[in-house]
Write a protein that binds this DNA or RNA. Structure first.
Lengths: 253, 253
DNA sequence: ATGAGTTCTTGATTTGGATCAGCGCACGGG
DNA sequence: CCCGTGCGCTGATCCAAATCAAGAACTCAT
C-alpha cells in the first residue's frame, strides 16, 4: 500500500518540526526537544499502538502515515474520534489517566517518534513556553472534536460525510501533502468513515455516491478529488481550525 | 430559581481552589494565582457570557452556578458541548483562536472569576507546573468530550440521556454538591438536554419518562434521583472521568 | 493464476427518532 | 388577580438511516 507523507527529516525532532509551524524556536528549545524523543518506531498497517483500558508507557508524534483513535462500546460498535497525520501528537490522555480511554490504530504503515511523560515534564519545566504551546494545541484539538460532535449530533448523514472529507483535505493541505489541484488517496474503508461519522458503511456508500453524482466529489483510480469544495464546506457546516494563535505565549527561554 | 453550589470562599482565588483538588500548591504558586484573577462578576440566568464568532477578551473560572457552551449550526439547530459547574474553566478556546468557536450561556445565575490570557502566560512562565496541570485538565476534558461523541454517535436515545445524567451526577458528587442519598435540582429544560444529546425535546421527554417508569430515575418536586445508578451506568456505557493523574508533573516552584 | 477474504455496491424492508399538533400547568410580571 | 409565556406531556404521522440480503470487484497470499 502506498504511504503518504513519508518525507519527514529523518533524525530531527518530530515535535520540533511540528511546533516550528507555530513559533520560532530558540536554540535552547530545539536542543531540549532533541533530547525528548527516543528512536523512531515503525508499525504495520492495522497495528494497534495503544489499547483501550491498558496502561500505555509513552506518547508519540507521527512522523508519517495515517492513524486513528477510537473506542469500542458495550454494544460492540466503534466510534472513531479523529484521524492522525504527520506531526500529530498521540496518546496525550496518558497525561490525565493511567488507563487509556482509547485505542490507537495504524491505518497505513506508520513511523512514530515515542517520548515519555517524564521527559515531557522536564521539557515543560525548563521551557514553559512549550508547555503553553502544547496547551494551545490541545485546546485546538478539543475544539475540532466539538465541531465533530455538532456535526454528528445535529446534521444529516450527507453533511457528516462531507464535513469529514473537508476536514481531511484542510489538514492535509496545511501539511503540504496535497499537490495543487490534486486528489488524495484515502486509505480508509467506508466502514472507517462510518465509524467516524456515526453511520453504517452501507449508508456512507450511498452518501459518497450521491456526492459523486452531484459532481461535488470525484473518485478516480483510488484518488479522491473535491470538485466543489466551497459548496461542500457550506453544505456541511465545516470550519477550518488548522491555524492557531500564538501571540499570547510567554517568551522563549 | 435556586442556585446550586454557591459556597465558594469569597475572595480566594477560584482557580487555586480548583487546582488544590489535584496537587498541593506551594506558597509561591498560591500567591501567583491570587494575582491572576480580577474581581468576581455576576450574570443573570440566560446571560450570554461569550458569543460565537465574537472576540472574547478573557477567560473565566466558575465560582458558582451552571453554564453551558454550545454552537449553532447553519440549519438553526444548536449543539451543547458541555455543562460547566464550580471550578470549571471557561473560554479556553481563546488560547488558540481569536474568534470564539462557541457560545457560553449561564443556565442559572452565576458568579465568574475572569482572568486574561496575558496574565495566564505570565503564570505559566513563572510556574510551569501550573501549565502542565492545565494541560492535563484540558486533555481530560477532551477525553470527556470524546466519550460524549461516542455516546451520540453510537448509542440509543435512552442511553444518551442516561449517560448525560450519570455524568452530571458524577461531577456534582465530586464537587460535594450532592448530599448523600439526595437528588439534584436540574435547572435544565428538556430542550437543553436534547441539544446536549442530539435529540429533540419531545423524544427526551419520552426517554426520561421511560426511565422513570422503569424505576431507574425518579423525579419528585423538582429533584432528580438516580434509583438504580449502577444499572444506568452500565446501560448507558458511562465512564467516570472526574479524577486525574498528577504524579508525572514537574516540581513546584 | 487461483482461491479466500475484504470491500464496495445495490435493492428491499424495517425502525428509531423527528416532526407536527395540541393540551394543561406553573409561574412571574403587570 | 389574571393573563401570557414557557415548559412538560402526549398522540399521530413521517422519514432518514439502519438492517438484511446478495452479488460484484478488488486484494492479497500462496
Amino acid at each position: 500500500m502506498r504511504i503518504q507523507g513519508e518525507e519527514g527529516v529523518l533524525g530531527g525532532s518530530c515535535l520540533a518540526e511540528r511546533l516550528r509551524h507555530y513559533v520560532r524556536l530558540s536554540d535552547a528549545e530545539m536542543a531540549a526537544l532533541d533530547r525528548l524523543e527516543e528512536p523512531d518506531r515503525t508499525y504495520r498497517r492495522g497495528a494497534v499502538i495503544i489499547r483501550e483500558n491498558e496502561k500505555p508507557r509513552e506518547m508519540f508524534v507521527v512522523r508519517s502515515g495515517w492513524l486513528h483513535n477510537s473506542a469500542v462500546l458495550g454494544n460492540g460498535s466503534r466510534q472513531i474520534m479523529r484521524f492522525h497525520f504527520r506531526g500529530d501528537i498521540i496518546g496525550l490522555p496518558l497525561l490525565a489517566f493511567p488507563d487509556s480511554p482509547e485505542t490507537v490504530t495504524a491505518v497505513t504503515d506508520v513511523v512514530l517518534c515515542p517520548f515519555s511523560r517524564e521527559k515531557l515534564a522536564q521539557l515543560i519545566d525548563q521551557h514553559p513556553r512549550i508547555g503553553a504551546l502544547l496547551l494551545a494545541l490541545t485546546v485546538a484539538s478539543r475544539v475540532a472534536l466539538a465541531d465533530r460532535l455538532a456535526s454528528i449530533g445535529r446534521t444529516s448523514a450527507r453533511a457528516r460525510v462531507g464535513a469529514l472529507l473537508c476536514e481531511i483535505f484542510a489538514r492535509m493541505r496545511r501539511l503540504g501533502l496535497i499537490a495543487e489541484g490534486e486528489g488524495v488517496h484515502l486509505p480508509l474503508t467506508q466502514e472507517d468513515i462510518g465509524d467516524a461519522t456515526g453511520l453504517t458503511a452501507v449508508h456512507v456508500n450511498r452518501m459518497m455516491r450521491a456526492l459523486a453524482e452531484d459532481g461535488i466529489i470525484e473518485r478516480r483510480n483510488g484518488q479522491l478529488h473535491l470538485r466543489n469544495e466551497k459548496g461542500l464546506i457550506s453544505d456541511s457546516n465545516f470550519t477550518d481550525r488548522t491555524g492557531i494563535e500564538t501571540g499570547w505565549l510567554p517568551p522563549a527561554r
